[in-house]
Design a protein around this nucleic acid. Sequence first.
DNA 1: TTATATTTTCAGCTACTTTTCAGGAAAATA
DNA 2: TATTTTCCTGAAAAGTAGCTGAAAATATAA
Lengths: 224, 224
Amino acid sequence: MRILVIEDEHRIAQAVKEGMEQEAYAVDVCYDGADGYNTARSDDYDLIILDVMLPEMDGVTLAKQLRADKNHTPILMLTAKSQNTDIVHGLDAGADDYLAKPFSFEVLLARVRALLRRPHESTPEVLSISDLTLDTNTYAVRRAGKLVRLSNKEYALLEYLLRNEGKVLSKNNIITHVWNFDANILPNTVEVFINLLRSKIDKPFKKPALIQTVRGFGYKIGEA
Amino acid sequence: MRILVIEDEHRIAQAVKEGMEQEAYAVDVCYDGADGYNTARSDDYDLIILDVMLPEMDGVTLAKQLRADKNHTPILMLTAKSQNTDIVHGLDAGADDYLAKPFSFEVLLARVRALLRRPHESTPEVLSISDLTLDTNTYAVRRAGKLVRLSNKEYALLEYLLRNEGKVLSKNNIITHVWNFDANILPNTVEVFINLLRSKIDKPFKKPALIQTVRGFGYKIGEA
DNA sequence: TTATATTTTCAGCTACTTTTCAGGAAAATA
DNA sequence: TATTTTCCTGAAAAGTAGCTGAAAATATAA
């Protein structure tokens, strides 16, 4: 899950970025509206967290522009304490929810999850396929009932695969979604992590492998 | 446990804040209704203490608004002595309890405790797991029957872990819940307090440790 | 005040994670 | 069959998370 944060207060941007990364989201940050608009346009984000007050281009204009471009990425708008009129403009402009500053990280996280859930309406807390389960609450991953210990990146990769079950994901797609777009990662790193995952959830089990290579295109998770 | 106090009389607000912090609650204060509404909306509090008479937005309206937003945080409403009609309006608007000014701190504390207990209805006053117990009334913590002395923060941390038994809590999550959201605390401080707790409730006992590290994700309390 | 306890930061250490590298295997193409 | 491309994989290198003893800062008590 990739999130774009457009916020000129570095302190807040940084806090949001770090917190979200902790939760295994890939986060990019832009510090002004114009930059944010371009980045949002040229990249495929799952959510945009957008401050109203921004240099270069304000949040309301930015949201309007994106919607005019037929970009439907969910937008969570941040408003300063007493800019209640902004809220109206914001929702008007196409934002999907708003949050007044200062906010707690927990609330932000709850809203983000709600927005990310929305399209599928009822994303369950436990993702699963065949006898593999991933519990987003406890971060516990099991295959055939056996608990499997995964590192943060391994977990993020598996979660991304599971959320796109059956779909073939290219290495670049995986890099941009599991890592940040400004992360300078070789495609081979994805191969290595696929390998790590396989050696933990596929190889030890005498069962049909769940992670498939689709030569020339990427990887997918699925049965058979 | 995080409490929001919305009260324009600084003297009272201050007294409540200090008293509650003494009792190991994390307290934030807002001095007018609009500010209070936004803060309550954007933050995940466990209880709101709300004055009826407020500048910008009165308490009854505020409570109604929150309930309309589907915010179910318990509300304890403060009314001036002879505003008995307010009480009716207040409870009508969604307040869970009320208290007439002037009140003694002890009474306030008792009500707060009652309200914090209520949501789960059957939330016991004694939290426990395995042979560890934490009595929210007396603040007594025991492991294997032995009384363990904890400092304020240690207690708050343990209580938070116990109230989320089995769930993995990230360091950021812990910081926002056990400290105030505007607290500038290094993640390492959490590590240090986990260490302090362990040295009091886990290490001295030749038993399986209760506090678990989930590397890359956070901590949880639970058996095995 | 001085002493005492609590809270917070700091610095060093260890183990684990992440990333790169280099060579080899497998599949596709000529 | 040789060549090219893509992927796999073991191992080295670089980077990071978490633990801990101790010091510094802060709060509380005597």
